[in-house]
Amino acid sequence: MTAAEYPAWLAAGEQGYLADMVRAGSHTPEQARKKAEEDSARCSAGRGHLRQHPFGASGRRRADRQRLAQARHLPEVTYGYSLVVDPEFRGRGHGRSAMAIGEQVTWDVGDRVVMFNVFGGHEAAMSLYTAVGYRVVEETRSCDLAAGVDG
């Protein structure tokens, strides 16, 4: 993506992240907003660092709006913070293409593992990751006890 596109992409990603946390029930709207702002500031602080590579489709495929941001998370691990294929372009293999590009970038920077976080309820994303060979490494579940407890 271009430098001019980056602020809008970052803002949209922050809003999506906030919405995911609220939808998944892991945070209240206020908590999610604070966490999204903090995490966004931390992740964008390294922009330009060798290990952070925001990129998207270019040229003829620019309309596909594939976006994948990579940044250092663990030793020899590239962590994908965001993969977005706009709704009108889904189901055409662009997610798989973006995953393949992310894997190549990971290899090119010397890492050996790619990891993505996905919030519960994102069945399409989970399905894509499974279909391209990713396995579940960690899973967290919650129960809102304020909603009612039997007995």
Rank of each mutant, 00 (worst) to 15 (best):
G95W: 12
M115W: 12
A69P: 09
A69R: 00
P75G: 09
Q70T: 06
V84R: 09
A71S: 13
G91F: 02
V84M: 14
V77K: 04
H94E: 15
G93D: 06
D108S: 06
A98P: 12
R67C: 15
Y79K: 01
H94W: 13
H73E: 15
R96W: 13
A69V: 13
A71D: 14
E88L: 05
R67K: 10
V85K: 00
F89T: 11
W107V: 07
I101V: 15
R96I: 09
T78Y: 02
G91Q: 04
L83C: 05
A98K: 07
H94F: 12
E76T: 11
V85Q: 12
H94I: 13
R112I: 07
V85R: 03
G102N: 06
I101G: 13
G121D: 08
G102I: 08
Q70Y: 08
G80T: 01
V105M: 09
G93E: 11
A69N: 15
F116E: 14
V84S: 03
D111A: 01
R112Y: 03
H122T: 12
L74K: 10
H73V: 04
G120I: 01
A100I: 00
G95E: 13
S82D: 15
D86G: 03
V113H: 05
G80A: 07
N117C: 11
V109P: 06
N117T: 10
G93L: 06
S97G: 04
R72A: 15
E123R: 00
R96P: 05
T106K: 00
V118L: 02
G93I: 09
N117S: 14
A100D: 08
L68T: 12
G93Y: 05
F89Y: 15
D86L: 15
Q104N: 11
H94N: 13
V118K: 00
V105T: 08
F119C: 04
E123N: 00
V109H: 07
V77D: 07
R72L: 14
H122I: 13
V84C: 10
T78W: 07
